[in-house]
């Protein structure tokens, strides 16, 4: 029973992190129908910048919550900048070309960013310090969930609420929804598509940065390659939920997190990743539009 409970919590935690990354995929896909393959790399850069800033600021004497928030904020800002630049360099010049072109450009960017970080930082595995201070109230819960898991769940919940408010309440958020429903019509009604696309990349990257920061704290280890698998998983989650759908990405991520966690707990952790990909193929074959995706009819 305790195993079951632990697996639930770890599934929820994993799912939350996947959700943070998956949102970036699904939002970009909803707006420009592109699998932003380099998104996993943004997340990896988020983890790296968080680590670097925590060490630099730590050397200046910052600690505790202050250090966590300062390095977290800087990581989020940097990822937003990377995301924005990524779109300007690798995708914007390709608009209007065949669908394969931006996808290949995205794969190229992914490879580039991975090797860039490997070159300027290190190919070795780095350990991530424990940035989250102890919380007295949670001490009693130790057996069920760690403080890091709590922090991840809390941060994810806050991010989701913020994202929902942003999309529902702000002008640019509404413009994003409009573009994802009907880009031509949105443009005709005066929506600045460039601005919407930039914003989408910025928001997606910020969420990925949060994910990067959290996963660093959770897994305690990272290298330049973490973006690939995490990106793949998050994309799987987005597809599971129905790509383009924001609640779908969250649901898909949770499903994936639970599936992996239970596979690792009851079968073998060797097959954790296999389960994720088998799930992807199975769902896409049986329900090509994902769990929450609506069946789309192609216009002829």
């Amino acid at each position: 029973m305790e195993l079951f409970l632990n697996l639930c919590v770890s599934g929820l935690t994993k799912g939350s992190i996947y959700a943070l990354i998956a949102l970036g995929y699904t939002m970009v896909y909803g707006i420009i129908a592109l699998i932003n393959f380099a998104h996993g790399e943004i997340y990896m850069i988020g983890a790296f910048t968080a680590l670097i800033f925590s060490m630099v600021l730590g050397a200046f004497g910052l600690s505790g919550w202050g250090l966590l928030f300062a390095s977290g904020t800087l990581a989020v800002v940097y990822c937003a900048m990377y995301g924005w630049t990524l779109e300007k360099v690798a995708y914007k010049p390709l608009r209007g070309q065949s669908r394969l072109a931006p996808l290949i450009s995205a794969i190229g960017m992914s490879i580039f960013l991975q090797n860039y970080v490997q070159l300027v930082q290190t190919p070795n595995v780095l350990s991530f310090p424990d940035l989250i201070p102890d919380i007295a109230i949670l001490a009693g819960m130790r057996g069920v969930a760690s403080k890091t898991q709590f922090a991840i769940l809390a941060a994810t919940a806050v991010s989701m609420v913020a994202l929902t408010l942003f999309i529902k309440k702000t002008r640019i958020g509404m413009a994003m929804r409009a573009v994802s429903q009907d880009p031509t019509m949105a443009r005709l009604s005066g929506v600045n598509i460039d601005k919407v696309i930039s914003t989408t990349f910025i928001i997606g990257s910020m969420l990925a940065a949060v994910g990067g920061l959290l996963v660093g704290n959770y897994g305690r280890q990272m290298d330049f390659f973490i973006g690939f698998l995490a990106g793949m998983k998050a994309f799987t989650a987005a597809v599971l939920g129905g790509i383009g759908s924001i609640p779908g990405a969250v649901v898909g991520a949770l499903v994936l997190g639970f599936a992996e966690s239970f596979a690792a707990g009851y079968v073998s952790s060797d097959y954790e990743d296999v389960v994720a990909f088998v799930l992807l193929i199975a769902i896409l074959t049986l329900r090509p539009d994902g769990i929450m995706g609506s069946a789309t009819t192609q216009k002829v």
């Binding site: 707006i31 420009i32 129908a33 592109l34 900048m81 924005w84 630049t85 300007k88 360099v89 690798a90 914007k92 010049p93 608009r95 209007g96 669908r99 573009v179 009907d182 880009p183 031509t184 443009r187 600045n192 598509i193 460039d194 601005k195 696309i197 930039s198 910025i202 789309t296 192609q298």
Partner: peptide, 27 residues
């Protein structure tokens, strides 16, 4: 489903609504 394809090229100034105006990002 549909790709956003801005066939009409955006006016040069509107492209850079981001952090630094005037066109950073090499791109």
């Amino acid at each position: 489903m549909t790709t956003v394809q801005t066939e009409t090229a955006p006016p040069p100034a509107s492209g850079s609504g981001g952090p630094s105006s005037g066109g950073p990002g090499g791109g």
